[in-house]
Design a protein around this nucleic acid. Structure first.
Lengths: 204, 204
DNA sequence: GGGAAAAATAAACGCGGTGTAGATTTTCTC
DNA sequence: GAGAAAATCTACACCGCGTTTATTTTTCCC
């Protein structure tokens, strides 16, 4: 058992320490890229943020909480971006636009997204965040499929199930591609787009 | 740094300890299902296998090595099954047969396969095993696509890239479905099969 | 500018888990 | 049945996390 209640300090808007909190998350992101989750120790994060271990535990209750907060920050960003888009009605355009946006998201936040996926099992809070995010994407895909004429419903070849499968395809394909080069992301995107189109009944 | 060279004991065929080695892997598989990787401690595995921690370290150099061995054992099984099949030439039948086989594999070995995927990043040896396995599947899918008329090649809408995307779709979809019920596996399979068919240009 | 609250420091400590070492017993082999 | 190799046990050293405490510095705000 770690901490039952937050044991967090500082409540009430926008103290100075919010700066440090951001510094901690930034450092965490950097170290995650450099060494990976396991090898990254709490002391490293603190040091990188210019504080001591003790001080870090004033802001966050555990290592997992730090990473969870980092994921939350990133994921919130994803949601905003997604809310803005998704207004195109013509299916073909919608798909193309969505894939372009997906490339941007993975190019910019690939590391954190991969970390979120990896830790989904281990850290329940992160699991929640990511599965919620996935649901948003699935629903967006579902809407496009239905607009393109795929019958609505939960059965195997109806829109919901297909959208889910397509979402996992995109997630996994970009997960791998984002570990390589930006070119790989482009390639991956083109392939996913084509399969999505075909599945939607839109023969290119 | 853990252990550089194996530090393994016992070489030369079929000592008594091979029995224990199997017992260790069996216990590991059980505990993995019950508690998950992190919560499963080395002492638990040893106890389950009827020996002490120290004895376990005679057979395996680390916790990771134990799980890697378990994955290797399972994956070898997968390879055999795949070698036997994949002789159907008619694309539609080949796809249906492949999906039926995939259901069986995930129903039987879902837990270990999920573990392999989860630890691919953390444990290099497991990463190797799994990516090799994935390559086999990708190649099988590629062959079917080409037989169905999809042009060969590495470009985004040619057979190789599409096969890769389809493989990740199947992996991830089954990964999730296998955590729920056998019924979910059936559903997932039907959906994946449909998308695969469509992608291959075989309108159902 | 002075007092309260917030933010940070340093130095311990306990806990749990991994991996290692050395001694010891069992088992094979001749 | 003696010696070697295999298998096992017990005890320990290490590392990292999370906690605690006591003490200082910074910041807020009236």
């Amino acid at each position: 058992m770690s901490g039952h209640h937050p044991a967090r300090g500082r409540r009430a808007g926008e103290r100075k320490g919010d700066l440090r909190e951001r510094a901690i998350l930034d450092t965490c992101e950097t170290l995650l890229a450099e060494k990976g989750y396991d090898a990254m120790k709490v002391g490293d994060i603190a040091q990188g943020a210019g504080i001591t271990r003790g001080a870090l535990y004033f802001y966050f209750g555990s290592k997992q909480e730090v990473v969870a907060a980092l994921v939350a920050r990133t994921v919130e960003h994803l949601w905003e971006r997604s809310r803005v888009a998704a207004e195109t009605t013509e299916p073909r355009q919608a798909i193309t636009a969505a894939m372009r946006r997906t490339i941007e998201l993975w190019a910019e936040h690939g590391l954190v997204m991969r970390t979120a996926i990896d830790l989904s099992l281990t850290v329940p809070e992160i699991g929640e965040l990511w599965s919620h995010t996935a649901d948003l994407f699935i629903d967006a895909i579902r809407a496009v499929l239905e607009r393109a004429g795929v019958p609505a419903g939960d059965a195997p070849h109806q829109a919901s199930a297909m959208a889910r499968a397509l979402c996992w395809m995109i997630e996994r394909t970009f997960y791998h591609a984002s570990q390589d080069s930006p070119e790989q992301l482009q390639q991956a995107s083109a392939t996913c787009e084509h399969i999505w189109m075909t599945t939607a009944g839109l023969t290119a």
